[in-house]
Design a protein around this nucleic acid. Sequence first.
DNA 1: GTTGACATATTACAGCTGACCGGTAAAAGC
DNA 2: GCTTTTACCGGTCAGCTGTAATATGTCAAC
Lengths: 200, 200
Amino acid sequence: MPKQVDHRERRETIARALWRVVEQRGIAHASVREVAQEAGISHGAVQHYFATREELLVFAMDFASEQTSLRVADGVRELGNPPHPRDMLRAMLTEMLPLRPDARATSRMSAAYVLEALHNANIHARARDGLAHGRDLIEQIVRQAITDGHISPDRDPATETHLLLALTGLTPLIELSVIEPQDALAAVDQHLNRLFTNKT
Amino acid sequence: MPKQVDHRERRETIARALWRVVEQRGIAHASVREVAQEAGISHGAVQHYFATREELLVFAMDFASEQTSLRVADGVRELGNPPHPRDMLRAMLTEMLPLRPDARATSRMSAAYVLEALHNANIHARARDGLAHGRDLIEQIVRQAITDGHISPDRDPATETHLLLALTGLTPLIELSVIEPQDALAAVDQHLNRLFTNKT
DNA sequence: GTTGACATATTACAGCTGACCGGTAAAAGC
DNA sequence: GCTTTTACCGGTCAGCTGTAATATGTCAAC
């Protein structure tokens, strides 16, 4: 038996190095060599774990989505039981906006990934599926909230879902310091306040 | 006197070539050589008009903003006189979303520019100023609409402006075909309908 | 202690990059 | 016809790229 290494853990370490490079120096600098240097290993070692650069990008993005989901789950766990849908949506949105270091890293990773998706069929399909899945999750919450009387039945679940996802459009405003984080949170809260009835 | 060429026009031609490369092949492929080839000139000629690649990027983005403003102005001109603020905002937002070829080109250019801005102080300052200026324009329209009774005085102009700008967050949904253009327009119209009082 | 399997490192390669520079062509004033 | 100015070309340079091939290191089982 050879020396054994936790393959998955190694890949995650490299993926995190990629995040840091993307966050600090931009996707253009995220070469195999620079990621290797950031991870403190040789670029040949990176090749051992990822056959191609694209494979690395895809894994790093999947991992970023996963970590974002975990952060959301953590946030939701601190809510009441059962959690109010308004608070669940707020937790999701605040973790998607670049308001804290972890969220900023994954947000920038995500932005670069979407841009890459526009010219790479494989990545396009993956990004699309991922986003569509997130959309479905939110729409389900919205529909349940309507059923439970938290949201007016006049509202169209699909349109409301799109408007909630659109709130990630605050990202460039935050990243370029056009608005402050509290302004973004105020906008999110304002939107949620109008979406939900003030009954329960 | 030497051979005379319309300098500005040449630069715009090259900038449009850059747009096409960015739209069709991505910012990563937007090298001086590839842009030159797209424009049908030598890479030396591009250097004659732009000392550095960065200078080319900056010019192309300024030009994109300018052209977007012109498209908005065209759209507003077709509205009543005076145009209803609701229709003005709708024209602005629909020209910022990638719903038509021109708008898609400038939208992708803009997305790449924002990503670049995060790691380049010069571009950051320019992108920030440009976005802040757009924000101010919209906020002015919102404030005037409140004064004129088109929007409830309960609304906070700044927050409403941020929520309007956030609607550009529909862009990834459209680009990745998660929603259809008409879904995006429905969301925009829904948001505007709730923002404006239904009086005039 | 040899073997086998895998981890890691080294090196090589062909290609593209941005920046730079010398040369040339053309046009207009003198 | 000569000079000056501008427009543009094509080559060169050092440096970086992704990927592949190869070599060395490591350790458990036999």
